[in-house]
Write a protein that binds this DNA or RNA. Structure first.
Lengths: 104, 104
DNA sequence: TGCGATATGTCCGAAAGAGGACATATAGTA
DNA sequence: TACTATATGTCCTCTTTCGGACATATCGCA
């Protein structure tokens, strides 16, 4: 039962706090949209619509949480995102809340 | 900056995971809707619409996360909610995710 | 050459959610 | 007696979000 709840909750959190989950992934290493989508599927079993993901990534860059750089990879263009200082601060705030939720 | 982010995030989390924050409050002691509303204001600085809160509480009871009992208090009727086993399991699942978010 | 995978983007109708009004009842206080 | 606080509930409109389609381009493989 708790396992089912967990999977349910992971989906809710990913849906509602998707920007944070993206920042968490990009924090470890620079990533591009398609890769993020694939990692979400393999790591969390969650299918992201690319029609939702790409506009969100652009928004996160516009708001200064990410920066991007276009890279050519075998003819295909990747838009590789790196987390900014502001993005890291946002994650720090998130982690602080997580701690409070656990130990208060 | 991080402080502003934190307040922003608390509001987002409360909005999107309101049922969980309610379960967290009721877990410590049985509570009624109006009291939950007041505690959210004083503890987290968040104003809940009662037009959103009461239907949610009824939904949580319907789905077996809470049980309620009507109590008379100086002529006024309070609907006091208690968390169920299922409600506790849901919170356990939530806490498990919080831990993973912090330490993975 | 046609298909699936990689890669990024927009757009629109439907469904869900938010905000605020309407509704009712009691207690206490000015 | 009128107003504020306590207490719970519904309803309707507006806004936001969601799911899926449309769009384009390259690469590798059968």
């Amino acid at each position: 039962m708790t396992e089912t709840f967990k999977q349910q909750l992971v989906q809710r959190i990913t849906k509602n706090l998707l920007d944070i989950q993206i920042l968490r992934l990009v924090q470890t290493q620079p990533l591009w949209g398609y890769n993020i989508k694939k990692q979400m599927e393999t790591k969390f079993g969650i299918t992201l619509r690319h029609g939702a993901l790409y506009p969100l990534l652009n928004m996160l860059e516009q708001n200064g949480f990410l920066t991007s750089e276009r890279q050519q990879q075998q003819g295909r263009t990747r838009k590789v995102y790196t987390i900014t200082q502001k993005g890291r601060q946002y994650l720090e705030a998130y982690n602080a809340i997580m701690k409070e939720q656990l130990y208060k």
